[in-house]
Design a protein around this nucleic acid. Structure first.
Lengths: 245, 245
DNA sequence: GGTCCTCTTTGACCCAGATCAATCGACAGG
DNA sequence: CCTGTCGATTGATCTGGGTCAAAGAGGACC
């Protein structure tokens, strides 16, 4: 579909970011220059919240946003993690029984809903592309459900790290000389919300994985993976899913 | 969108089924008479399994099918429940890291993949309709994730019952005189796989809900709901989502 | 009737992960 | 320098739901 292999700074985006904005470079959506605009959010800023409606659809250019659902008593479950190139928003009727929050400073490439819908109706490509992306997300959600329902805390942590590593690899981010490394873009608490755990358990399991040599830590966020197969095994994934070349 | 209010026997389907086949009656997909065919599966029959690919896309006419993911050691998590009018299959490339199994005798309204894809490319309506449905499924998956990650066993059971009740209501199935009742289409074990529990816990929690008067049981499968609000409260859902009427 | 067989219920016990609480490190401001 | 804040770690204890085991409740079939 896309060729994500470009590493240079995206020339179109008004801000600086680590990875090239794949969406901007190659996507069909890019044809829609007329109705496209960029929007920045600060870390911690809520973009929409339950009951409210989002007036745009768009994709993440840089930074990270999360979708979370919250119960009355405060229990929170993350239901979506939006990394660069991910799409949010629902053409057609409103969705949004969940919050969308920027966890880092965030730039999104947005399209106003109305004109976007009109364009979608006249351009089969757009709807098909969007369907493709939504189906990918649905697949990811289903793997996530397996994780939430059946995996142990240790497996959940290992899965999360390998998921982020996979995403990074897909965007051709850091792949420094054989040794695989990822930056966890989330706090322990956010990881806990992602995995359906408490932050204490997350911390303990990360420590355990470190002690067992599955990962090494540098600071709180930077994780090195000496042996990817080992990590995938810990994650309980039966297939590597062709993660890395 | 659809008008599901018809109660009569669907005149198009070659088989008999309780509810009208909403898809057959009103859907755009129905225009595709030429490439449409019906297919029956026996209860327990596996339709596709991991690694295999499904050669068709289609929607459930009658009966129930499940999508499940299985880990090497046998842990299973249901990731999709296909009730009449639900759609399965992925136009474009193959997905299917999960099994699709008929849990009851099942009839599906199928379209061969190739011609369906071609039709989708020329008919914007189809792709948009499919996108709409996929987004609905994604929303459902996200609520499911909240359930799996954060709800207690009791809340999970109450949620499952209310989800099935909602689905039944949407299809205008049984709504006998004020008192709401549903048939659980799943065994205790299947419910457990749905909810990320064990079958023993499912059984215990159903007994507990019965003892507390939230539901009454008639046989193993037939559940009466004397007070819907009470059930929704037990489910921990903050909104009734306009469930009935 | 009796005997499988599958699904379900119930009991007893245990453990993974939650909860409560203390401590630590990094960093910002005064 | 001290102090406050925020995130992370670690310890002690508790508990919801898993595990293991036994028994009940229908069918279906002989």
């Amino acid at each position: 579909m896309h060729d994500h292999s470009v590493h240079v700074q995206c020339s179109e985006c008004p801000i600086r970011h680590r990875a090239v904005c794949a969406r901007c470079e190659t996507d069909e959506l890019n044809r829609l220059e007329q109705i496209k605009y960029y929007r920045s959010f600060q870390a911690g800023q809520t973009i929409i919240w339950s009951g409210d409606r989002m007036e745009f659809v768009g994709s993440v250019v840089s930074g990270i946003a999360t979708l979370t659902q919250t119960m009355e008593d405060g229990r929170r479950q993350m239901v979506g993690l939006l990394l660069p190139s991910d799409f949010v928003g629902r053409p057609g009727r409103a969705t949004a029984a969940f919050d969308v929050t920027a966890t880092t400073d965030l730039v999104m490439c947005c399209f106003r809903k109305k004109p976007f819908e009109e364009l979608m109706a006249t351009t089969p490509h757009i709807a098909q592309r969007l369907l493709e992306m939504t189906l990918d997300e649905l697949d990811a959600a289903r793997e996530w459900m397996l994780l939430l329902g059946r995996k142990t805390a240790r497996e959940k942590i290992a899965s999360l790290i390998s998921i982020i590593a996979r995403r990074d690899a897909a965007l051709h981010l850091r792949r420094a000389g054989g040794k695989l490394a990822v930056d966890l873009p989330l706090t322990r608490e956010e990881m806990a919300d992602y995995l359906g755990l408490t932050l204490e358990t997350v911390s303990r399991q990360i420590s355990a994985l470190k002690k067992d040599g599955v990962i090494t830590l540098e600071g709180n966020r930077h994780v090195q993976i000496p042996d990817l197969d080992r990590l995938l095994e810990e994650a309980g994934d039966d297939s590597d899913g062709g993660m890395l070349v």
